[in-house]
Design a protein around this nucleic acid. Structure first.
Lengths: 165, 165
DNA sequence: GTCCCTATACTCGGATAGCAAGTGTCCGAGTATAGGCGG
DNA sequence: CCGCCTATACTCGGACACTTGCTATCCGAGTATAGGGAC
């Protein structure tokens, strides 16, 4: 089992947008360039974030994406579910009710014990992710990033923003 | 993101084997029949469990599968990892080190903040699964199963075991 | 009666097709801007 | 000089191929059993 690559890209894009001034829009092509990932496919993930209400998109000359609400109001879980979908890892097909020992469906307990344990584990996973905000990740990124990298990033953004008028 | 169907089958098979006497071997075909799942494909999951050392397989006339150790020494996590592989959900491609702000790799912190949070969540998921044993699941299944279903199951097993000599 | 041998039927194990989902890409619809024109 | 209009260039959004991994299946190698025969 593995998460799609788009999840990593989407999270880093959200963190980057959180580090920028609130009124700045950044197009998908620039986000892709900054992260060194294929642009057209990154757009797919960004569209998912927009559809989930996490990002706002603006068209036209100075358009692009920006966070739709404060970075401390967006959790890591929000981003992951927006890209991957909100399906559970484990899908119970109720095989306990099949085969030669099957009886009337109403006789069974509402939740299979196996499914209950699997879902409890997934709940723990979600709880951790929902306890981390994009703002916190942005803070960590700023704290851990090498000074030279931050300098280069600031220079790159200055160039991009000036080119956009 | 979703777990393969084989996980559910493998867990239920392990629970079933845990409920049987220790010296009984049950072939894949019977396990599939009891659970109402495609036999040849279930064998694939059982082979994975055997490869991971959770099950022992015996060939020949009275062959089949049985648990390789006590059911309270096998956790739900063991079974899930055996079938799905022990890869992490999230794979960090270190995109923070790419693009126009990249600097020397040694300058970066050892673990990306995003990856750290994702892996902490996965750790929570694994902790829950590793805290549940197959023996516990078997106990829950016996407690929750309808009495009529247990009666039919016992009858079916009696028939199967007598046919095997 | 006991032991051994052979034939048998059953088991696992790995190698082989089909299909769905993830991955990667493209082009068309829509919009804010910039410049030119008229008042 | 100011306001309006048009052309432009850029953006997002959804529709279109391709590859990987999951789903499902099959047949061959190996083994313990059961029966028969020899001693």
């Amino acid at each position: 089992m593995r998460l799609g690559e788009g999840v990593e890209w989407a999270v880093h894009c959200a963190v980057l947008l959180a580090a920028l001034p609130d009124d700045v829009c950044l197009p998908a092509s620039r986000l892709a360039q900054f992260h060194g990932v294929p642009g057209p496919y990154l757009a797919k993930s960004l569209q998912a974030l927009t559809g989930a209400g996490l990002l706002e998109s603006r068209g036209g000359r100075k358009g692009g994406y920006r966070l739709s609400r404060a970075a401390d109001q967006i959790t890591l879980l929000d981003v992951v579910l927006a890209v991957e979908g909100d399906e559970t890892f484990f899908r119970c097909t109720e095989i306990r009710r099949r085969g030669p020992s099957a009886v009337a469906p109403r006789a069974y307990s509402p939740v299979c014990g196996v499914a209950g344990a699997m879902w409890r584990a997934e709940r723990a996973w979600r709880d951790v992710l929902s306890g981390v905000t994009i703002a916190e990740l942005a803070g960590i990124a700023l704290r851990d990033a090498p000074a030279a990298a931050q300098t280069k990033a600031v220079a790159w953004f200055g160039e991009v923003l000036s080119a956009r008028g």
